[in-house]
Design a protein around this nucleic acid. Structure first.
Length: 571
DNA sequence: CCGGCCACTTAGGACCCCGTTC
DNA sequence: GAACGGGGTCCTAAGTGGCCGG
């Protein structure tokens, strides 16, 4: 994508790990070129399969069967998962069995015809013992393991990109195993095959030291394409999609892209009012397609829905976004809970996370929805004259670089900024300020529907915390009465123990925060949707140390923002 | 236009590690 | 010194959206 021409001239001026020169002093490349020089060691391959010891056996129909190496490896994948609920699922078991049989020899295949007659018990027990043994390793063993891992990171985890030594995000080839998609995935249980060097394309500079393939192997291809950012790629066998090895989020390349993303969202801020009045007009259009586009945009803007690309049926779990909503996902209520024109959404979105929301909408939108649903079956598309391509084409005509997802970024960031202004106050103490920050963050997470499964130990840990609070309260009460006594006797001045009160407040704030956060995931919005400059400026204004908001890796990722942002920054 | 392909961002959960508490 | 619990990292799936060729 081309860099929009009207971006500010002063780019991010953070410094990288190896160079102190501000980025904006470096040459800019022509369109599409991502680097001049790229050198790396190639991906790291997972260890080869270790055959089972003789005393661990697989049984079919009660009889021990020595499997071929390939079939055994796949059997072990299944055996390792036996504690998981999904090994009991029909689709998972059928997919697994079908793929497993493909790995068997002719003889094995003619013997093993029923998964229910397979006994993986010994293999499963061995695996559990291994996990247990790993947990019980001595300090020395753990240290040795850690050092060995560090050595791998040192050797494979970095690359040289132009003048910078950069950390690679995922330098390890994904190990083989059984595919477990999210939700009701039709391909769950299929065998995800082992990747060989012969499957891997290496991308690097012609004049760099080209990585050597593992002994006895060769790469699929050596490519020198400086219009892409990946270092290596391979095609995965489940969906047939390409997997990439790319840089870490703290790299210059990723940082610049991130900065650019937020600059586009800020540009939307300056023209969003015009765009809104445009789509309000379009709600009345004579063209059905235009009306559908307007309603979709209304949802994307107001509810921060994802665009909703079409998906191939049977290839993935049945999930939708805005443009792919079906009639069955929406219920219209003329009246609901004292509101008029309420739209009830109930659908599975990305990662099969449920989106459930009852939203009062303007009458024109409501009427249009009724019209779109007329004479349709529950399984029919709500927006039959619209797709993401048409929507994005329209958006890019309104503003350079504008797509559906920019609205999510814009609305997330602007919401954080507004909420911070509304909720936080310089007179609060630090714990209160942090609660306010988290609440602002939470408002965004709720808008974007970033959910998490409630932690398994949630009730337990809330109870423990409450017990602590009660204990502190008691202590405080005791201290107060002691003070009273002291005052009476010695006419001592001063308040009750301020430290104790502070501790109590801190605990109470912590309890509130945790309770409110039960099913909300803050990390996704913090990492992907909230312009970090808003948070940096807030910290400066509130005199809150940045480390309270961002951990080390987040500070590395947002180095560009930390370096360029003053207290007066406005999104 | 449309489908396939490609590149890249966004996402939740598993797992690991380390400090705290009993 | 074991158990706990919570933050941080790792993993990789699942999205978005551009481009190209028919």
């Amino acid at each position: 994508r081309k860099r929009p021409k009207d971006e500010p001239l002063d780019g991010p001026s953070y410094t990288s790990s190896t160079s102190s020169a501000p980025v904006w002093e470096e040459e800019k490349y022509e369109d599409g070129v991502k680097w001049r020089f790229l050198e790396h060691k190639g991906p790291y391959f997972p260890p080869e399969y270790q055959p089972l010891p003789d005393n661990v056996q697989f049984y079919y129909n009660g009889k021990a069967v020595k499997l071929s190496l390939a079939a055994e490896e796949v059997a072990v994948f299944f055996a390792q998962m036996l504690d998981h609920e999904y090994t009991t699922k029909k689709v998972f078991r059928e997919n697994f069995f079908k793929d497993w049989r493909k790995e068997m020899t002719h003889d094995e295949r003619s013997l093993i015809k029923d998964l229910d007659k397979c006994d993986f018990g010994e293999i499963h027990a061995m695996h559990k013992a291994k996990v247990e043994a790993r947990k019980n390793m001595s300090k020395e063993e753990k240290l040795a393991l850690k050092e060995a891992n560090q050595k791998i990171i040192d050797e494979f985890g970095y690359c040289l990109l132009d003048h910078h030594k950069e950390r690679i995000g995922n330098f390890k080839i994904e190990p083989p195993g059984l595919f477990r998609g999210r939700g009701e995935h039709p391909k769950q249980g299929m065998l995800k095959k082992r990747i060989q060097p012969e499957d891997v394309i290496i991308n690097c500079s012609k004049n760099s030291c080209i990585p050597a393939a593992p002994p006895g192997h060769h790469w699929k291809e050596i490519r020198c394409d400086n219009t892409v950012t990946w270092l290596a790629s391979w095609t995965e066998n489940i969906q047939g999609s390409i997997k990439y090895i790319m840089l870490n989020a703290n790299s210059k390349l990723k940082g610049e892209k991130d900065w650019e993303k937020y600059e586009i969202a800020r540009k939307l801020k300056s023209c969003v009012e015009g765009i809104r009045s445009q789509y309000h007009q379009d709600l009345k259009s004579k063209q059905m397609g235009t009306r559908q586009r307007a309603v979709a945009l209304y949802f994307i803007d107001k509810l921060a829905l994802r665009a909703g690309n079409e998906k191939e049926e049977g290839e993935t779990a049945d999930t939708v976004g805005c443009c792919s909503l079906r009639v069955e996902h929406i219920t219209l209520h003329e009246q609901l809970d004292g509101n008029e024109c309420v739209v009830e959404f109930d659908f599975l979105g990305k990662d099969s996370i449920r989106y459930y929301n009852k939203v009062p909408v303007i009458r024109k939108v409501f009427k249009n929805l009724k019209l779109f649903m007329e004479n349709k079956e529950p399984g029919d598309d709500m927006f039959d004259r619209l797709n993401t391509n048409m929507l994005n084409k329209h958006l890019s005509s309104l503003m350079m670089g504008l797509t559906a997802k920019v609205f999510r970024t814009y609305n997330a960031s602007i919401t954080l900024q507004q909420q911070l202004r509304e909720l936080s106050n310089k007179s609060e103490n630090q714990a209160e300020k942090l609660l306010s920050y988290n609440r602002a963050n939470r408002a965004v997470a709720i808008l974007c529907n970033h959910q998490r499964a409630p932690p398994k130990t949630f009730e337990q840990s809330m109870a423990t915390l409450q017990a602590k609070i009660d204990a502190r309260k008691e202590q405080l009460a005791l201290a107060k009465s002691e003070l009273k006594q002291a005052k009476k006797e010695a006419k001592a001045k001063g308040s009750s123990d301020p430290k104790l009160e502070e501790q109590l407040l801190k605990l109470e704030v912590q309890a509130t925060d945790r309770e409110e956060n039960k099913q909300i995931a803050l990390g996704t919005s913090k990492l992907n949707y909230l312009d970090p400059r808003i948070s940096v400026a807030w910290c400066k204004n509130m005199e809150v140390p940045l480390e309270k908001i961002y951990n080390k890796s987040q500070r590395d990722k947002f180095a560009w923002a930390i370096d360029m942002t003053e207290a007066d920054f406005e999104f």
